[in-house]
């Protein structure tokens, strides 16, 4: 298995496109970093009267909440969260960290995870389909190795590639963030709101967790792209459909969720696990275990389709 993954890895890295993808990802980090530096607040010192400010904010939020119509449930929940966190700040004398630091930059860079995901999807979509496109699949499959093993090695390679993209994103964001914005005042706690209460978290652990959780939807869509690639042998279809879903899947699901309860069974309602650790669930009554089970079901369906079709397929043409 090890040597099969090496093979796939070589096939990915002997193509210039891969380096273009990595380059674009690093460039995106540099671009956001530069923009933040140039247009961000220049000298954000801690306001000595921050307690008053926070109190004002709480009052404002509470007023807004009481005025909201009952249909805006999601918005209301977000306000609730904001109020809870601000009250926690007052109680424990933790000033809000408006200041841009390397830490916040790493956190802001989670927005680029879907960018890293995009490239992983492209790799996943091509890894089976292009063997068919190149015609190399014939020579690949007449080795004394079971097809399921070959497909598994390809899937593991995709996951490894995805992890590598995440590490590159995290690493370049960290290097650039600390270089441009410094490490801040050493206050490395993060306030998270979960199940109606506020908890303090270590910043580094929090960030790693955030990256991991934020990449779940990317990994799920990558798995889907891989499945389409193996089933339909068509990388354009796999790329197109997956990226479309990556871009709008979440929004459409949110839209449906405001009206129908069954939205909670859709893939995108469950990919965002941060809604349980730091936020509010999309549909009332959803729990972490529910989401994990849903994700596992989707994952299994994708894999069964991919492996079922790929191992049985007649290789013609």
């Amino acid at each position: 298995m090890h040597s099969l993954i090496v093979n796939e890895w070589i096939k990915i890295f002997k193509r210039p496109g891969t380096y273009v993808m990595i380059g674009l990802l690093v460039l995106a980090v540099i671009a956001t970093g530069t923009l933040n530096k140039v247009y961000g607040e220049q000298n954000p010192t801690v306001n000595p009267q921050w307690e008053q400010q926070v109190q004002q904010q709480i009052a404002q939020d509470q007023k807004q909440m009481s005025e909201l119509p009952p249909t805006a449930a999601t918005y209301k929940k977000n306000l609730q969260r904001q109020i809870a966190i601000n009250q926690y700040r007052l109680e424990h004398k933790i000033p809000p960290d408006n200041e841009a630091t390397g830490w916040t930059f790493i956190q802001d860079s989670t927005a680029l995870i879907s960018f890293a995901g995009l490239f992983t999807i492209i790799v996943a979509a091509g890894i089976v389909a292009s063997e068919f496109g190149w015609g190399t699949v014939k020579l690949l499959l007449i080795r004394p190795i079971k097809r399921s093993k070959i497909l598994l090695s390809k899937y593991l390679t995709v996951i490894l590639f995805g992890l590598m993209m995440l590490v590159i994103l995290f690493g370049s964001a960290a290097i650039l963030g600390f270089a441009l914005f410094g490490t801040g005042d050493g206050n490395t706690t993060h306030l998270a709101y979960a199940n109606g209460s506020v908890v303090e978290q270590n910043m580094l652990l929090y960030l790693i967790k955030t990256y991991f959780l934020a990449s779940i939807d990317v990994m799920m869509i990558t798995t889907m792209a891989f499945m389409i690639s193996a089933v339909f042998r068509n990388s354009s279809l796999a790329v197109g459909l997956s990226i479309f879903l990556l871009m709008v899947g979440g929004q459409i699901t949110t839209l449906i969720a405001t009206r129908y309860d069954w939205a909670k069974y859709s893939l995108f309602a469950n990919t965002n696990l941060t809604q349980y650790t730091d936020g509010v669930p999309l549909v009332e009554g959803m729990t972490v275990s529910f989401s994990i089970i849903m994700l596992l079901i989707y994952f299994l369906v994708f894999q069964l389709l991919a492996f079922g079709v790929f191992t049985k397929r007649d290789v013609a043409a």
Binding site: I10, K11, K14, R15, W134, G135, T136, K138, L139, I142
Partner: peptide, 11 residues
């Protein structure tokens, strides 16, 4: 060899 051998051209 199954028909014309298709190999990885970029290698």
């Amino acid at each position: 060899i199954v028909e014309n051998p298709e190999l990885y051209k970029f290698l």
